[in-house]
Design a protein around this nucleic acid. Structure first.
Length: 638
RNA sequence: GCCGACGUAGCUCAGCUGGUAGAGCACUUCACUCGUAAUGAAGGGGUCCCCGGUUCGAGUCCGGGCGUCGGCUCCA
């Protein structure tokens, strides 16, 4: 007799040792059909496993994230079987799940996406057969014998403890696997191969090149279709495409990874910085600027010369070795050290929009998202140890305010002390407690990444969520126990003794280039009025009205709107089409009626047209919308 | 950096097994003067990424370089 308790608090008794299916059926037949696996006392197991003692059981269904992961792992096995059928000489290595699907690394001749349909057809066959996926445990000797011709599997089995080896079989295909898996292949209702790329066994280039085949799988076809739509939507929003179409920025072979900003891009850039300065001024920050080339001795003091050299651009001028800064902090240290600081001056919040260069590997460059030259909206806050909590809280509130302005949600992650670190246990405890209590005071949930902090201190990362649900890490708040030490920073306390200040680095946009790219994708090029590169365009309906249109344009510019006028001798329809494609939020058509009545007709990006709007009212409403940095163009009362 | 694909007009792309480069859009000019998503006609525009090789002949084949894109953390 054993007792099995469920998450809802219910407890059921069973006579013999039941397997998962029996327990699930005790809830209901229908429920049992939807179960893919179970969690027994926190461990994920196949439904076929028996439960031989009192335990807490939670069933995993297609609705649980774990369920999808298990499904994808099973799908990886099915794909492996399909590949082996078509390529009998292929040697399997590993096939894990990844964020949006799974892959399997297979030692086989190179294949391309053209080979996918054939593999997918085999996969479909296996799925249709609803083959049971059966687990069994095997002694090491047997497993070794079974995989005599599979060098990679042999290598893996050799590294495993005898008695811990499990095999999963579907039909005639057996794979070494920890599991768990779905009960039969029929659970995989939708599967699609996504791409193939090269990979190395154990990620080591000296090992043989493998084919990594990526796929994704879902419990139903609609979910797959939704996912493919999402990819398509993301593709349409690609900031590299939109950036070119809207004439925002460009990239050139002459400076790989270093973006060129065009006038339209700079309009957004400047709007972002203007906003940043406004928020920071009112949050008690001052702004500084430090050089981008600093000599070697500074980088030796900071430790970058030793630890970050591979990523730094270096120059020798007049026999003096220097580096182009990859980070702003060392310059900030020098500024701090210029004068004696009293505890009364702290916290000192110094912001810097700093241009940094980092030599990223050529293969990782990607539009504005991964560049070699970028600006950080950096700030260094110097404070006394007992100010940690309130300062971190202040940064969190600033982050909250700023991201909200863009309609970006976010979540927080705390990273704690890593294995390799500097500083004492007490320092780490104080620092980590400071961050934790600030997070608690701020009041939002946060995730903890144990051991993921920097060697010099714990940190809080801020992950934003864009309009289509993708997350990006932008902001970060890092406590630094290294640089104040290396640069021997101090302040004079109330006791008239020297003390070491605590320092944090923090960014909110992160990289302004990257943040701008994220905004392009977030808004899909349809910026709110305050960010739009061109806010209003005036279109005369014919050449006779061009002077009136130019007059309006002048009036808008004088009022502070980013305005343009399209007085080409083209048809009105054509000019409207182009203005729409350029995503200009306010399109003004200037005709006789407007000129005679001193009003405007305003077309917005949704295609709606409002007539008879008084010019001064239009300007006032637009300026108010911009000043409030509204997300919506809510300047019309209807 | 490594693996793969790609690099042709300002943009998007076509160009078969090697035979002197093409479309649409954009641009220029002319005509049209237009009331809410493309007026028409004519014209200009190319070191086919760069360097080297094979060949009577290379955008096309071969080698090297540069750049772009995707992948390179996920461990049976």
């Amino acid at each position: 007799m054993i007792n099995i308790s469920f998450p809802d608090g219910n407890v059921k008794q069973f006579e013999d040792f039941p397997d998962g299916v029996v327990v699930a059926k005790s809830i209901s037949e229908g429920f049992a059909r939807n179960c893919v696996a179970m969690e027994v006392d926190g461990k994920l197991l196949d439904l076929s496993r028996t439960i031989d003692r009192d335990a807490g059981v939670r069933f995993i269904t297609s609705r649980d994230p774990e369920g999808l992961e298990i499904l994808r792992h099973s799908a990886a096995h099915v794909m492996a079987e399909a590949v082996l059928k078509l390529y009998p000489d292929a040697k399997l290595t590993i096939g894990p799940t990844v964020e949006h699907g799974f892959y399997y690394d297979i030692d086989m001749p190179p294949i391309s996406e053209d080979d996918f349909p054939a593999i997918e057809a085999e996969i479909s066959k296996i799925i249709k057969e609803k083959k049971p996926i059966v687990r069994r445990e095997a002694p090491k000797s047997e497993a070794l014998a079974l995989y005599a011709n599979e060098p990679y599997k042999l290598e893996m089995i050799s590294a495993l403890e005898d008695g811990t080896i499990s095999l999963y079989t579907q039909g005639i295909f057996t794979d070494l696997c920890r599991g768990p898996h779905v009960p039969h292949t029929g659970f995989i209702k939708a599967v699609k191969l996504m791409k193939v790329s090269g990979a190395y066994w154990r990620a080591d280039p000296s090992n043989p090149q493998l084919q990594r085949i990526y796929g994704t799988a879902f419990f139903d076809k609609k979910e797959l279709a939704d996912y493919l739509n999402f990819l398509e939507e993301a593709r349409k929003r690609d900031h590299r495409k939109i950036g070119a179409a809207l004439d925002l920025y460009s990239f050139h072979d002459e400076a790989p990874g270093m973006p060129f900003f065009h006038p339209n891009g700079m309009a957004i850039w400047n709007a972002l910085l203007e906003y940043w300065r406004e928020e920071h001024r009112s949050a008690g920050y001052v702004e500084t600027k430090t050089p981008i080339i600093l000599n070697r001795s500074l980088w030796e003091t900071s430790g970058h010369w030793e630890n970050y050299r591979d990523n730094m651009y270096t120059v020798v001028i007049d026999d003096i070795e220097s580096a182009i800064k990859p980070m702003n902090c060392p310059g900030g240290m020098l500024l701090y050290k210029m004068s004696r600081h009293s505890y009364k001056d702290l916290p000192l919040r110094e912001g810097e929009i700093g241009l940094v260069h980092r030599h990223e590997l050529s293969g990782v460059l990607s539009g504005l998202f991964r560049v070699r030259a970028f600006h950080q909206d950096d700030a260094h806050i110097f404070m006394t140890p007992d100010q940690i909590e309130s300062e971190i809280l202040g940064v969190l509130r600033l982050v909250d305010r700023m991201y909200s302005t863009f309609g970006l949600g976010f979540h927080l992650e705390l990273s704690t002390r890593p294995a390799k670190s500097i500083g004492s246990d007490e320092q780490w405890a104080a620092a980590t407690n400071g961050l934790t209590s600030a997070l608690n005071a701020y009041g939002a949930d946060f995730k903890i990444n144990e051991g993921d902090g920097a060697f010099y201190g714990p940190k809080i990362d801020i992950h934003i969520k864009d309009a289509i649900g993708r997350t990006w890490q932008c902001g970060t708040i890092q406590l630094d126990m290294s640089l104040p030490e290396r640069f021997d920073l101090s302040y004079v306390g109330a006791d008239n003794d020297k003390h070491r200040p605590v320092m944090i680095h923090r960014v909110i946009y992160g990289s302004i280039e990257r943040f701008l790219g994220i905004l392009v994708e977030h808004f899909s090029g349809k910026f709110p009025l305050w960010l739009a590169p061109v806010q209003v365009v005036v279109l005369p309906i014919n050449d006779d009205l061009a002077p009136f249109a130019r007059e309006l344009h002048q009036q808008f510019e004088t009022a502070g709107l980013r305005s343009s006028v399209d007085d080409r001798s083209e048809s009105l329809k054509k000019k409207i089409r182009e203005a729409q494609l350029r995503q200009i939020p306010l399109i003004i058509t200037a005709g006789e009626k407007e000129r005679d009545q001193n009003t405007l007709s305003v077309r917005t990006l949704d295609g709606k047209v409002r007539f008879g709007i008084a010019i001064n009212v239009f300007i006032k409403d637009a300026m108010e919308n911009i000043k409030a940095r509204k997300l919506a163009l809510d300047m019309f009362s209807d």
